[in-house]
Write a protein that binds this DNA or RNA. Structure first.
Lengths: 189, 189
DNA sequence: AAAGAACTTAATACCTGGTACTAATAGCAG
DNA sequence: CTGCTATTAGTACCAGGTATTAAGTTCTTT
């Protein structure tokens, strides 16, 4: 045996997971076994054929596209009252933190708050024009950040002031005052 | 003729666009023409077969997943004098903009500026504690943003004020004043 | 070493959703 | 009726499989 069956199946699973587009014949070359063996392995592991896998990836994508407004928020929106308030939750994972010290990067917290503030606005176009933010405590890998946004002032000129406070448990870790521009196409980012 | 050819092809295009998973035989039923007609239409319109369409949707998805991991420094650092100044360049791509209007998301510009400000600091630990930012012009898909950071003040207490201005060509699109904490582990994110 | 189980490979028929090509037919204008 | 476009039909072939049966090949266990 080139490599024991169990090991091969473990690797197979991994390989397919990280490249769902790979075909049986490519796999059979990679593992130096016959194509039939690959197929038996897939059956045992209940891994569908390449076309089904691709279709699955694609349909996940379509789901996301459908819930456009939602998917553009960083974190999971768990409550939304347009032009009033909104709440989102974001779990700190590896890609959100500095690898050296496992502390969350500032722009991740900003992104959660900013996109929540933008999503809160009940209009076609909503863009941040100004923000003042304070990071009041470090956030670590694994912690769950709950961001709460509320509209503070709806101005005449098409600007809205939104205030966002983010918490880990009871502790406030971030707060920001955003000015969001809405509607026209003329102004800011 | 059930419906003129041109009209049918227009509808076909639309139909496939909004549901790339639809097969030729389903289309042929929907338009009450033979499957060959559908295939001729697809050829004339240069629309690939269903599996290719699905594959395309799926691979777009994979791209997004990769780029969503907003990990290390955002943008390419092209100049760095520690504790003095730094410059980075970021080209606006699909994943950086709102799909609706192709305008850059605020947190992308913030992330570029913030990570540049943090990278500028010559210390083990550097975290943003405060920021005041202004988005002064929309940035669009395809534009190149050059962020310039400079240290404004090195304070005694371990804080550093960094100012970042980002440009598209001559135009300032973003500016921010950051306060960066350095060294110890006690304070902010 | 021989038997048996587990694993691997081979071979073949069949499926879907096509491509590529040729040919026949329908419908209408001049 | 001729000619032209649009449509339909039919056939051969392809990729990337499923499903099944059968034939090796190891490995183990007695």
């Amino acid at each position: 045996m080139r490599v024991p069956k169990k090991e091969r199946q473990r690797l197979l699973q991994e390989t397919i997971e990280h490249n769902p587009f790979i075909k049986d014949d490519e796999l059979s070359k990679q593992f130096a076994v016959s194509i039939q063996t690959i197929r038996l392995d897939r059956m045992e592991l209940k891994i569908p054929e390449v076309r089904e896998r691709i279709k699955h990836v694609a349909s996940e994508h379509l789901d996301e596209v459908k819930s456009l407004a939602m998917s553009e928020v960083i974190g999971d929106m768990i409550d939304l009252k347009l032009d009033e308030s909104a709440i989102s939750v974001l779990d700190m994972e590896r890609e959100h933190v500095f690898s050296r010290n496992e502390i969350a990067r500032g722009h991740v917290l900003f992104a959660q708050a900013n996109s929540l503030a933008v999503a809160l606005i009940d209009d076609e176009l909503a863009l941040t024009t100004k923000a003042e933010i304070r990071f009041s405590r470090q956030v670590h890998l694994g912690e769950r950040v709950v961001a709460k946004a509320r509209v503070v002032k709806l101005r005449r000129d098409g600007r809205t002031d939104v205030s966002v406070d983010s918490y880990v448990g009871e502790e406030c870790v971030f707060s920001g005052d955003f000015t969001i521009y809405r509607r026209g196409e003329e102004e800011q980012v």
